[in-house]
Design a protein around this nucleic acid. Sequence first.
DNA 1: TTATTTAGTTATCAAATGATAAGTAATGGA
DNA 2: TCCATTACTTATCATTTGATAACTAAATAA
Lengths: 145, 145
Amino acid sequence: MDKSALFNQFVTFTTAVHEVTHDLTQNVNIDTVTPVQYKILEYIKVSQPVTPTEISDCQHMSLPNTSRELKKLQEKNLIEKITDTEDRRKQSICLSKDGEHMMNEAFACVEVRFQQLMQNVTEEDLAEIQHALNVLQSKLFNRQK
Amino acid sequence: MDKSALFNQFVTFTTAVHEVTHDLTQNVNIDTVTPVQYKILEYIKVSQPVTPTEISDCQHMSLPNTSRELKKLQEKNLIEKITDTEDRRKQSICLSKDGEHMMNEAFACVEVRFQQLMQNVTEEDLAEIQHALNVLQSKLFNRQK
DNA sequence: TTATTTAGTTATCAAATGATAAGTAATGGA
DNA sequence: TCCATTACTTATCATTTGATAACTAAATAA
C-alpha cells in the first residue's frame, strides 16, 4: 500500500541513525588511527578472530588495501596475525593487548555518550525501544545473503 | 537496569543499518560524482535551499572544502548558486535541473532495491515496522541540540 | 567612518583512500 | 607431478579528502 511512504520514512530514519552514530563516535581515539583503520578495528573487535579476506568482504575494500592497513595496524601493535596451522595461507587476526585496551576505551567512551542520550528515558520507553530495535533488526535490517 | 545490554543491541543495530544502507546505495550513479559530493547532493535534495555554511555544518566538513566541492558540482551543472538579495554574503544552493534529474534517478534506484527488500513483508509486519521506526526516531535518534 | 565579524573563495599541502598489476606461497585436484 | 586456484603481499599510481593560511566582500557594531 503505502510502501512508498515507508521508503521516505526509511530514508529519514537512516539519515538520523547515521548522524547520531557519527556524533557518538566523533573524536574517539582518532589520534593514532585513521577512520578506515578504526572501522577495521571495530570489526575485528566484535568478530575476532577474522581473516583478511573476511575484513575485505565486510568492509568493502580490496584485499591489497586491506593487507596494507592491517600491516600498519600491526606496526602500531594493535593487532596480531597468526598463521592458520591447518591452511597456512590463511591468517587469523585478533586485537593485541594494546588493541583490546584501545577499543575497550573507545567503546566505553561511546557508551558513556549513549547513556547520556538515554538519561531521561523511562522504564516503559526502554522496553518499547528494545522491542522496536528487535522488530527492525529482524524484519528490515536482517543481513542475510 | 539493562541499559548496558541495550547499548550492545544498539551497536549491533547501527552496524546493520550501515551495512544495509551501504548495500542499497552502492553503485548508484557514482560515475560522475565522488562519495562526498553524492552526500552533499543528497543533503541538498532533502533540504534545499541551503547555504554553504549549513552544508559545512551538517556534513561535518570545513567551509573551504565545502566551497571547493560545491564549485565542482556547479561545474558539472548539478547545482545552482544564487546570491541572497537580503544579505549578499549568503548563497542559496539548489539542485539544477540536471541535478534534480540525477538525484531522482538515484533515489528511484535505491527505492527499487528497498522495495525488493520489502517484497515478502506482510501487511501486519508493515504496520509494525512503521511503528518501530516512529518509536526509534522519536525516542532514540531524535537529533535535537 | 572605522573596525570587527560573518560568509564564502582560492590556493596549497599532506595524508588517506581506491584501483590495479605483479608477485609469493600454500593447497588441492588432474 | 603438474596445474589451477586460493590467500595474501608488495608496489605503484591517481584521486579524494582534510587541514590550514590568506584572501575578498558584505554586513554590522563602535
